[in-house]
Design a protein around this nucleic acid. Structure first.
Lengths: 126, 126
DNA sequence: TTATCTGTATTAATCATATAATACAGCGTA
DNA sequence: TACGCTGTATTATATGATTAATACAGATAA
């Protein structure tokens, strides 16, 4: 577990975002155990309360659940996971559209740029 | 001049963003005068120092210039304006790619979503 | 010359965030 | 039973970014 934090956003938000991405990319199994608050805090060199806040957000969003005083687990609700994926994608698309709205770029040109960047990135991953 | 501010981002950043969009969409002519710090502050109901900070950012980015103690003006450097447009677009595309990276969405599906949203938005503008 | 605009600079106050220090309760196990 | 893990909650403090208050200097016009 490692996150490169930026200074702009709150740490707990970035932790949540990281977990969302991990979950959405299928790196966790349904019901898989995640690190305890204190252990996560140790790993990421953050305050346990910050870890707690991140987990609380995720719990309220239904992404994780906690039974008794055992470490929290990834939700087993597949619908929640599908929704997460959809929200990540649609949110990203919405932001793109909003950002280019004032620029008046033709749709074809925009798509060309996206394809180029997409391929470029896929290449880097290999 | 009117901006609907969100609570998330600093006001001066949002002011800069607004001007960038206005400039990129061609709503200003080269060398056109913009409101004074104090007048902008009045219009937007913000503190004059916040307006000053926004203008300072824009001046450092080369988007506006100030001569003596006259109101600032939009740059006359067309290259700066072309760069601005390019940066807005490429920044938006980069953020999109980064956001969907963990989701493993096929490029065709992504493009389909973008086209749909784009058309939808163009429809609303009319 | 006085008033009123400019832009600019300095300092103070505010606010959200992050950190920190503690405490409490439940559970498993040595 | 006692220890060491869990999660959770409360309160206080520190910090940094943002915003606000105030002052100053130059220019223009009544």
């Amino acid at each position: 577990m490692k996150i490169t934090f930026n200074k702009r956003d709150p740490v707990y938000i970035q932790v949540v975002q990281h977990f969302k991405e991990q979950i959405a990319s299928g790196k966790y199994e349904l019901g898989q155990e995640i690190p305890s608050r204190r252990e996560l805090a140790n790993q990421l060199k953050i305050n346990p309360n910050t870890a707690q806040r991140a987990y609380k957000e995720m719990e309220e969003a239904g992404l994780i659940f906690t039974e008794g005083n055992n470490p929290s687990r990834i939700t087993k609700d597949e619908q929640v996971l599908r929704n997460l994926r959809t929200e990540l994608i649609e949110g990203a698309v919405d932001r793109l559209i909003a950002a280019v709205e004032p620029v008046n770029i033709p749709i074809d040109e925009l798509i060309g740029l996206i394809q180029a960047k997409y391929e470029e990135q896929r290449g880097e991953q290999r």
